[in-house]
Amino acid sequence: MKRHLVSRREVQPHPLWLFEENYLLLRRLLPRLRPGARFVLGGGHGALRVEVAEDAGPYTTHLTLSTTFAGDGQLPPPLRFKVRIYHDARLAEVTGYQDCAHIPPRYAARQAEGFQRDERRQVNRLLHEVLQQCRRHGHVAVEQP
């Protein structure tokens, strides 16, 4: 009798899978990241606006992403992310969210007022869902002047 072996990754992905997936999604959606570039993905009520805020050499790029929702108040408020891309490690991490400039690491979240222990993971998961939604709907990055 053959037993099907399940890899450890299938049961529980490694700790950086979310950051790796965000990197891959961003690079698929935004193949050209040059300093000062601005892009819009999608249109209408749910566009994602992206600005390359800073290009810190060949290894790191800082992005600002924001959603635009318009409607009768039943839609969620606009989202704003600050994302750091580490090209050499092939990772993307949310460093700021909404009006919060710095999300404390897990070990410091208890001392920080109003943060959950897994706040970083939650915000990176939200970015992942937004990027997957863009990809699912076939949004293409259109560079803005």
Rank of each mutant, 00 (worst) to 15 (best):
L65Y: 04
R9E: 15
G73M: 05
R121P: 00
Y97V: 05
Q111K: 04
Q122N: 10
V142S: 05
R110Y: 13
D99I: 10
Q132E: 11
P78D: 15
G43C: 02
H137F: 12
E21K: 11
P77G: 12
H139E: 05
G114E: 07
V142E: 13
C134E: 08
A141M: 01
Q144M: 03
T95M: 02
A70Y: 15
A70N: 15
F39Q: 03
E21G: 08
L75M: 06
L18Q: 13
A92Y: 00
P77Y: 07
E119D: 09
A70D: 15
A56G: 11
V50S: 01
E119P: 02
I103M: 05
L63A: 06
Y97M: 01
Y86E: 10
H102W: 14
A101P: 03
A109E: 05
Y86H: 15
Q12T: 12
L63F: 14
C100D: 13
T95N: 00
R90V: 04
T95Q: 09
P104A: 05
V6K: 09
L30Y: 01
R125K: 06
L24M: 10
Q132R: 09
V140K: 12
G46S: 15
A47W: 05
I103N: 00
K82D: 07
A141I: 06
A53E: 15
L26T: 05
P104H: 03
A109L: 02
R28D: 14
Q133F: 01
L126F: 04
F81D: 00
L24R: 08
V50P: 00
F81K: 04
P35Y: 12
T68H: 14
R3S: 02
P77N: 11
P58R: 08
R3G: 03
F19I: 01
A141E: 03
R28A: 11
F19Q: 11
Q144A: 05
L41K: 05
H137M: 03
D55Q: 14
P78A: 09
L79Y: 07
S7V: 12
H128C: 14
T64S: 13
D118E: 14
H62F: 09
A53C: 10
R34F: 09
P35T: 06
D55H: 13
L79D: 04
Y23W: 06
V52C: 10
T95E: 07
C100A: 12
Y107F: 13
P78N: 15
L25F: 06
H137W: 03
L127K: 08
Q111G: 15
F81S: 01
R49C: 08
L16W: 07
G96I: 04
E10G: 05
H4P: 05
R49N: 12
A53G: 11
R28I: 09
H87R: 13
G71P: 01
N124W: 04
N22W: 06
A109V: 01
L24I: 07
V50K: 01
A56I: 09
R27D: 08
D88F: 03
A101W: 06
D72A: 15
A56Q: 14
K2G: 11
C100S: 12
R117C: 03
L126M: 06
V40E: 06
G57I: 06
A37M: 13
C134G: 03
Q132V: 09
S66A: 15
H128F: 10
